[in-house]
Amino acid sequence: MPTANAALVDRENLRTGVDAALGRHVARLREEAERISPEAGALVDAVERMVAGGKRLRAAFCYWSWRAHGGTPGDGREQGVLRAGAALELFQAAALFHDDVMDDSSTRRGLPTAHRVFADEHAGSGRRGEPRRFGDGVAILLGDLALIASDEEMTRALAGLPVSVAQAAHSVFSSMRTEVTVGQYLDLVAQTMPWGTADDDERRAREVVRAKSARYSVEHPIVLGAALAGADDAAVAGCRAVGLPLGEAFQLRDDLLGVLGDPATTGKPAGDDLREGKRTVLVARALAHATAAGDDAAVALLQRGVGDPDLDAAGVAELTDLLVRTGAVADVEQIIEELWAQTLTQIEARDWPEPARGTLVELAHAAVRRTA
C-alpha cells in the first residue's frame, strides 16, 4: 500500500490494536522459546522482524468488514476482531517464510530473506554442514512457528463469542489456510510444466492467482470480518462477490510490480519473478501475442528467459521490453480495470453503512493502485 494511504489502516486505532496483539504474542513466544533454550531467541527475532513489516491490509479488510456488518468500536467483540487481524498477519508471515524458500528469494521488503540471513550466519561462523540447507531449514521452522502462532491468536480471538459465530469464523480461517497451501502447490507445479497452449497457460495462471493470493489477500479477510459480526449467508455471499475480483486485481497488480516496479519501493530486485519462472497472466499473454504474431524469436526469448535463475540486468530489461511491446502489460492493466469495475459494482449493491463503506472503497483503491 502506498505510504500516502498508510493512514487508512490507522483509522479507529486499527494498526495500534493489531500491533499490540502481535507484540503480546511475540513476547509470549520469546518467553516460551528462551525457556527451552537461550539460543532460540534468534528464531523469535526473525518472526518479530517479519510481522513488523506488514501493511496490515488483510487485518484492515477484516476489521472494516466487521464494521460494515454491524460491529461497533469499543464493544466487547472489538478486541477479538483485532486479534483475528493479528492472526491473519501471522499467517501471512508463515506463508512468506515458506514462499521465500520455495522461490529462493533474496530480499523481502528491502531486507535479506530469513533463509539467506541464517545461511550467511552459518557460513560466517565456521559451522559444519551446508549453509544453504541450514538457512532453508530454519526458514521452514520459522514458517511453522508463525503458523502455530496464527492458530493460537485466532483461538484467543474466538474465545467468548457465541458458538455459531465462532464456528463460522473458524471455518473461514481454516478454508483460507488450506486454499493457500494448495495454491502454493499449484504455483510450484505451474513452474515445472512445459509451455502449453495460450488458453491453458492463462487458465492455469488465473487458477493460481485465485487460490494462492486473491482469496487469502482480500476475499477471506472480508468474509472473516462479516462472520465475526454474525452476518447471514446472503451477506457473506455479498462479501465474496466483492472480495474475489478485488483480490484478483490485487495480485495482477503485484505481478506487474514484480516486473515493472521500482525496487526501492517494492523491496524486491527487478526481475525476480522472471528469474523464478512465475507463470503469470502477464507472461501467458505475452507468449500468446508473440505466438499469434508468428514472432518465433519473441516466443523463444520468453520460453528461454522466464525461469532462468542467471538472468542478468540486460536480460531482465529485454524481457520487460518484450512484455510491454507485445501488449501484455496493457492487457493486464485492462483486466485490472475490469475487475476494479466489478468490485465497485458489487460494493454499490451492498447496504454497508458509513464510515465502513467509504473506508472499504479506499482500501480497495489502495490495493489496486499501489506501487509496492
Score class of each variant (00 low, 15 high):
211 A>W: 14
347 I>Q: 08
162 P>E: 00
244 L>G: 08
210 R>N: 15
87 A>V: 08
194 P>T: 02
55 K>Y: 02
104 D>I: 10
245 P>D: 10
68 A>F: 12
98 H>M: 07
14 L>R: 13
238 G>T: 07
232 D>S: 06
10 D>N: 13
78 E>P: 00
23 G>Y: 00
337 E>F: 00
35 R>L: 08
296 D>R: 11
229 A>G: 05
128 R>F: 12
283 V>D: 01
305 G>E: 01
359 T>R: 08
348 E>M: 08
70 G>I: 03
75 D>K: 12
63 Y>F: 15
43 L>D: 07
273 D>L: 06
198 A>E: 09
196 G>I: 11
234 A>E: 08
204 R>I: 10
44 V>W: 04
24 R>P: 01
220 H>A: 14
108 R>T: 01
104 D>V: 14
67 R>L: 06
90 L>D: 04
27 A>E: 09
70 G>V: 02
130 E>M: 07
231 A>G: 06
14 L>P: 04
91 F>Q: 11
334 Q>C: 15
201 D>A: 10
288 A>W: 08
292 A>W: 09
205 A>S: 02
347 I>E: 11
152 E>L: 14
295 D>E: 08
326 T>F: 04
49 R>S: 13
322 L>T: 05
214 A>F: 03
97 F>V: 02
307 G>D: 03
279 R>I: 11
172 V>W: 02
8 L>C: 08
321 D>Q: 12
183 G>K: 00
114 A>L: 04
29 L>R: 02
110 G>I: 01
354 E>A: 10
330 A>W: 02
248 E>D: 13
260 L>Y: 12
31 E>T: 15
292 A>L: 09
